[in-house]
Amino acid sequence: MSAIEARLAELGISLPEPVAPVANYVPFVRTGNQVFLSGQVSIGPDGLVAGTLGGDMDLEAGQAAARLCGINLIAQMKAACEGDLERVKRVVRLGGFVAAAPSFTDIPKVVNGCSDLMVDVFGDKGRHARSAVSCPVLPLGAAVEVDAVFEIA
């Protein structure tokens, strides 16, 4: 078992099968030593986490939704690396999108649910640049969506 797989197990994370695209795009594109991952929505074992932060969802629920996005990103990354997460040299960037009411301003705290997971799993290689923005609605009604850029060996 690789160090990354061991760390996932320590965290109690079992990676799901990568989620299939819902429109005309691919889940990831490798170019050179970078992998661009398409946005992953807040879907987990119990289905889609839908809602609006500052509406029918609170901060903690949003962070949990963002964590699910991170788990899905790692699952896609594993597929992009042909099963070998040890090829990850760096999480370069995350782009977080949060369905939020106009008065909800804790967008960065929501996306920390994904950012914290990347550091928990990859250590210093998980520290990344990031954007975190709100929007009125996300695909499928998801609460959170996150895309990513990784560097691989």
Rank of each mutant, 00 (worst) to 15 (best):
R30E: 06
V98E: 03
E86M: 08
F97W: 12
F150W: 13
R130I: 00
V111F: 03
A79E: 11
A99H: 02
E145A: 11
A66Y: 09
V133M: 12
G55Q: 09
A148T: 11
S115M: 11
L68H: 04
E86K: 03
D84L: 05
P27Q: 04
Q40Y: 01
G123D: 05
V88K: 03
L59P: 00
L15K: 02
A61Q: 15
A3F: 08
E82T: 01
D124I: 00
K125S: 09
S131I: 13
G32A: 09
L85I: 04
A9H: 12
E60F: 01
G70D: 05
S42C: 05
F97R: 15
E17N: 05
A79S: 12
A153N: 04
V92H: 11
C81Y: 03
I152N: 08
F104D: 10
R127M: 14
F150L: 15
A101G: 01
K78T: 02
D124K: 11
A64L: 12
L85S: 07
A80I: 00
A75P: 15
D124W: 07
D58N: 15
N24A: 14
A23G: 11
D56M: 09
P102Y: 04
V110I: 12
G12F: 10
L94H: 10
F104G: 07
C135D: 05
L117R: 09
M77G: 02
L48M: 14
L117V: 06
I43C: 02
V121L: 10
P18M: 13
S134K: 14
S2G: 14
R130M: 13
V133A: 13
E82N: 15
V121N: 11
